[in-house]
Design a protein around this nucleic acid. Structure first.
Lengths: 299, 299
DNA sequence: CACTCCCATCAGATTTTATTATGCAAGTAT
DNA sequence: ATACTTGCATAATAAAATCTGATGGGAGTG
């Protein structure tokens, strides 16, 4: 069966273009890296396929007909668009083209995430990144419904449609002013914090329960002076001497300014943070590249 | 030697496009008229060539990756432009696309040429026609320099760069009012025109010399009452009873209105008209088509 | 459990495609 | 004039690409 659309292949179009451009089949062959007979054959096939002559053989030379010149413009455009396809392929292959939507809780996206993003964009400058800052529930839902490509969440992630890769773990630390009386101690524990006004995050999650549990186990109850909702504000309150903030080290680091110190809290309360994607779709190459980058960042 | 640009052929692009469009390799094969294994192979080759996966094999189905969708738009455009090339080829092949510039003396372009052009455009409606109306010298030069594709001229055409094809011949006739006393005669000759006021074209060409010669041969001198420069005006003058116009029949016919008659002049003075092109370039297919049409018109 | 649908792979045959060698025509220099 | 060069076309041959039909595996479906 003959398919007329395939009678004129890319090679034929390129040959035609090159002949018109260079004015000679021999030269065209050189520019395309093939021999002159190949050009001749392609041209002959093309002329046979289209039904009219493209060149007028004049004294051994190929002279384009008016029809050929009419066609040339269109072929030129077409080859240009094919070249653009190749260019787009290269861009995609080399991560110069693509969009990545991420979501993370505010404490993450205000602290550690900008660092990761910055170095990622340094490696892949042309990628278009979007970052949403949402609460835990919203984050979960955005990822599960694939409204975003991926997100960061604190483990555990209990959702059948979510796939979590552990990327970071960090412990709870005590943040206080450097002139605080307890700043002299290497580490702190419930006993040493007895009676101290504490600044805790009121997020109703496992994290707060862990802290309460640590005090209970030590036979105490924490003296919660202030409850707040972001790591940044907890540190800011501590900086004003209102108490000792118990926050996650990794999230607190960006908020540590002059005059604030952090001391490990014992028993160690580990929080694990995961890079989360939907199980409904395989992550895009860009997503995987970002994950890889994140893992290197924390390695 | 490997040429990366040829690793992705049109077939591969079409296959990719069809798979995304139909959602299945089997269906894509059907729509392209090839078998499913061919599609599979083309896709595998393409993925190998570009270096990243285009589809995610999910439960036996091909699901486009984000990268594939990114690429799809570009491929779609590209295939569209290739299709346009084919469309242009068809248009050219069927004379639906093209430009034709013609030149002819005023007597020609005001009389007989519009008829030819009208029926030509009826056959090839999309062709863009340009008609110049110039004197003999200008006509010759425009054709010789290829400023136009072709033109009409009265023979002989003495110019090395011009190629003339005889397309029409017609004789000199006498045009007069139907109430003229000589209108009763079947034919006229120098003897019967003795003393009649004549209207002649003053064009300093062979045509006027022929007429003078005919009278001289008959032992007379024509009584030139009026000299004018176009066939139309000569007939118009004759219509006002100012004399008998001796003009070429073919050129006169369009100017014959009610009240005017034409009678053959003897001895017969034949004028030959040619379709003239440049010898420097082979005429375009459209030019040849117009010549063919002209010949049929006069046949 | 049988049936169907879909994709990947394989083997074999056919078709394409390119290369080298050669011929021909025409222009150019000796 | 004669020989040399240049440019295109063609033929023979070798190599590569591509298609088809058959086959198998995985996964839904009645």
């Amino acid at each position: 069966m003959k398919r007329p659309q395939d009678l004129i292949g890319l090679k034929a179009l390129r040959s035609f273009h090159a002949i018109v451009a260079t004015g000679s089949a021999t030269e065209a062959g050189r520019s395309l890296g093939i021999t002159q007979p190949a050009i001749s054959r392609l041209l002959a096939q093309m002329e046979a396929a289209i039904g009219f002559a493209l060149f007028h053989r004049d004294r051994g030379r190929l002279v384009p007909t008016a029809d050929a010149l009419l066609l040339f413009d269109e072929v030129d455009l077409s080859l240009g668009s094919v070249a653009r396809v190749h260019s787009v392929i290269r861009d995609i292959a080399e991560y110069r083209l693509g969009r990545l939507k991420l979501v993370a809780p505010p404490s993450f996206s205000e602290g550690i995430l900008p660092d990761i993003v910055a170095s990622f964009l340094k490696a892949f400058p042309k990628v278009h990144l979007t970052i949403e800052s949402r609460g835990v529930e919203s984050t979960r839902s955005l990822i599960a419904t694939r409204a975003v490509d991926a997100g960061f969440m604190k483990l555990p992630v209990a959702h059948p449609d979510l796939h979590a890769v552990n990327v970071a773990r960090s412990a709870v630390v005590c943040v206080m002013r450097d002139d605080h009386r307890l700043a002299a101690r290497e580490t702190l524990d419930p006993a040493s914090l007895l009676g101290e006004p504490l600044i805790l995050l009121g997020l109703g999650g496992a994290s707060r329960a862990q802290i309460d549990m640590a005090f209970v186990t030590a036979g105490q109850r924490p003296r919660v002076h202030i409850e707040t909702h972001t790591v940044g504000s907890a540190c800011a309150l501590a900086a004003r001497g209102l108490g000792i903030a118990l926050v996650n080290e990794m999230l607190a680091t960006p908020s540590l300014r002059d005059g604030l110190v952090q001391r490990p809290f014992y028993p160690q309360l580990l929080h694990e943070y995961a890079f989360v994607t939907s199980t409904l779709t395989r992550p895009s190459r860009l997503t995987l590249a970002f994950l890889d980058h994140t893992q290197r960042h924390f390695a």
